[in-house]
Amino acid sequence: MIVVIMVADVLTPVSVHLGPLLVVAPAITASFASPRLTAAIGALAVAADVLIGIHDEGLGTLNVQVGLGGLVVVSLFVVLFALIRDRQRRELTQVRSVATVVQTVLLRPVPERLGPLHLASAYLAAEAEAQIGGDIYAAVRTSHGTRLIIGDARGKGLPAISEAAALLGVFREAARRSPELPALVADLEDSFDLTQGQSDAADEVYAESFVTAAVLDISDERPILSIVSCGHPPPLLLREGRVISLDVGRPAPPLGLGGLGEPQYVPTEFSFGEDDLLLLYTDGVIEARDAAGIFFPLERKAARLTGEQPAALLKGICDDLLEHVGGRLGDDAALIAIRRIAGT
């Protein structure tokens, strides 16, 4: 651009001074280059303007000197802009790296193998730049089997993340020491109430927060699983090409709303035998809509993948889900797939 402007100035009459157009060179450079390169292009533009003034024999005129001064000032400003942008970019990179570490700690992928179970997990963030959110899942090995939780914190922003982290911490600890599933869920409710009680009572964000969750206990010895649902969508059981919705008779209120009454955490048992495949998910999956407003048909999509291993099942569902919504989810989505291995 500098060369083109210099050539154009040479070819035009002396009365036409094109030097001020050189400001576009450092201005455009600042949009993508480093401050050092922006400064170098600015200096080159100033030097080119001086050469144009010498060539036109007008370097001593007020018009050329004002244009040259304006070019210097603009070049300094765009270098300052490049410096500020680079500093903000470094800060954003640091924040993203911290968020990635936080998500790794908060939502550790479930182990591929726990006792007689083969597992896989997936998490899809609604925001392209987001690393963490309110959807949670975890799996804990106990002396008699495996316990799992999947949930969706309905608060917003940092309160939802804080509650999710606290709830997962309590689950990972209490799942090993609570002998019965109802006692485990009661501990989760108590911890949620404690977390809210430590916040400002006038904070409406915390006051409106709660967590829908499904807590499961899968026995090693018996081909059964027990579920306590706290207002969470029912898991799907994939068996011999069929998809069975594991609806509990009377779900308990979401965690955080136990103060509205005396919740009864009654587990519901379902058969879960060899080669059965269990799919847990949050409502970000089933409430995802396409451009026409049609919900994602999870059961129909899962029915085509009943013979797959857990990781392949989740990959197929996630691919179909992103295709359904055009690549952008309206809400976070978390999934866990569990298969009971034959012969164990």
Rank of each mutant, 00 (worst) to 15 (best):
L22F: 11
Q196I: 09
V16Q: 05
L329C: 03
E323R: 13
V325K: 02
R250W: 12
A202C: 07
S15C: 05
A43C: 10
L335K: 13
D275N: 13
Q88G: 08
L194D: 02
S178G: 03
F77C: 01
A333N: 03
L106C: 02
A186Q: 13
Y137E: 02
G327P: 00
E323T: 10
N63L: 14
S143I: 05
A312I: 03
P297I: 02
S191E: 06
A175M: 04
L305Y: 04
I227W: 01
A139C: 11
I218K: 01
V101I: 12
D276T: 09
I227S: 02
L117F: 15
T268C: 02
F192W: 02
T282K: 14
P235A: 14
P111Q: 08
A43H: 03
V205G: 00
Q198C: 09
Y265Q: 03
F272W: 04
H55Q: 12
F77Y: 06
V4T: 07
L22G: 03
A174D: 00
D247F: 14
S245Y: 15
T282M: 09
I136G: 04
I52M: 15
L119F: 11
Q103V: 07
D319Y: 01
I41W: 01
L114P: 00
T268S: 07
I136K: 01
G241F: 11
G258M: 09
S97I: 10
D247C: 14
I286C: 08
S209Y: 02
L44E: 01
Y265F: 14
A302L: 10
A45I: 13
P20W: 08
P159A: 14
L188M: 11
L188N: 04
K315P: 00
S75L: 02
L22P: 01
E208L: 15
E180A: 09
G258N: 06
H144A: 04
P20R: 05
V243N: 03
V266W: 12
G293K: 07
A43I: 06
A139Q: 07
G169W: 15
H17N: 10
S199M: 11
G157R: 15
K301C: 04
F192M: 09
A165Q: 02
A8N: 11
H17R: 14
